[in-house]
Amino acid sequence: MMAVGDFVWCDLSTLRPETTRPFYRDLFGWDYAVNQLPDGSDYAVAESRAGEAAGIFEMPRKFQEMKLPSFWMGYIEVGDADAAVASARENGGKVELGPVPFQDDARIALIRDPLGAGFTVIENSGLPVRSDNAPEGSMIWNALYVSDAARVISFYEHLFGWRFKPSSGAGETYSHYQILNSNGRHVADLVQAPEAIRGSFEFWGIHFSVADRDRAKATVEAKGGAVLYEDGDAVLVQDPDGAAFFVAVPKAGANCEDDSASKSLFRYWKPAAALAVLWGAFMLDQSWVWGLIFLAWAIPALRTGETHLIEPVRKRETPVLFWSITITWIILSAAVLMYGL
């Protein structure tokens, strides 16, 4: 199911990638695979323990000429990038770029809301929804920091179908809202804060997972960055090129209503049911079930761009191997269902 209105990716537009890439390697333990974008420029994909975590690339000349500082950018899935761009313009936003091709079959557009906070919409990303409780070095949360919530709420309601639920101080100088997607899931926060707290910019903040907040702060400062301020459980920091981001220790049980064993089993009922079906097929000698299993492996791979054979294989990194494995699942599924083993 497409993750429309959910955060799926983030990247850093930096003036000095040769400086920032080592900084984040030291902070998060990232490794990099350097790919090329459709325009021929380099795009370094960082990997954490959870897999692909973020992108780092040199800021395009257009933005350098605008004297923009280095910045982190969140990506939000949409079903139609052209429609998103049209909606943004109709509701007071500004389109800085796109829609343009990104990687594989994806298309992106860089948009600013009516107060100037920037984000990217991505169509056909094939990326999983951001996890709120991922290992160190992964994006775990997104929050919008603005001076006037009333000026942007309608914009995002029209663009993504989001709903804004006041959680504290609505209408006051400092206000906090939960952002709910069309399914009612809490996907981000909106914080209205004065300049003394927010700084001079209106921005979407990217939150990255760390195991130890104090150690992360010490690493940031030791490697040429700066600690700016603490916002609850998160710490706003800057890399050596001036790009700001948050580090935070994931909350236990994030995105889970109950961590009891019975709830965990219910949460994973699909693999539990599949395991039971496999044992039943084995005991009853029903080989056709394997055809359905092969098909069940192929369909998610086509949707997400990632399959698994001993270890994860991603279409973006090794397209030949990815398609070889996925097509194998499809052929085996057809052969078993039609002719049996």
Rank of each mutant, 00 (worst) to 15 (best):
A81K: 03
G126L: 04
G93F: 01
Y145V: 08
I76Q: 06
T120P: 01
P101G: 09
L115F: 09
F119P: 00
R107T: 05
T120L: 13
D148M: 07
F119M: 15
L97Y: 01
E136V: 13
G74F: 05
L110H: 12
L159I: 07
H158F: 07
S125G: 11
P101R: 10
V85N: 06
S154M: 04
D132M: 11
S125I: 04
P99K: 08
L115Q: 14
S87A: 14
R112W: 00
L159A: 05
A150Q: 09
E96R: 12
A106H: 04
V100S: 06
H158T: 12
E123I: 04
N124A: 14
G126Q: 06
G74T: 14
P128R: 13
S154P: 00
D80N: 15
R151Y: 02
A88D: 03
N133E: 13
Y75W: 11
D113R: 07
G93D: 00
S125P: 02
G93A: 11
M73D: 07
V121K: 04
V152Y: 03
W72I: 00
V100A: 09
V152L: 11
S147F: 06
V78Q: 08
A84P: 08
L115C: 10
D105V: 10
R130I: 13
V152K: 06
R89Y: 02
R107G: 01
R130L: 14
L115D: 13
L97V: 08
P128S: 10
Q103I: 14
F155Y: 13
G93N: 02
Y145A: 05
P101A: 04
F119L: 15
N142P: 04
E136S: 14
I108Q: 00
V129H: 09
L110P: 04
V129W: 01
P114W: 09
M73L: 15
Y145F: 14
N133M: 00
S138P: 01
A109G: 10
F155P: 00
V100Q: 09
S87G: 10
I122P: 02
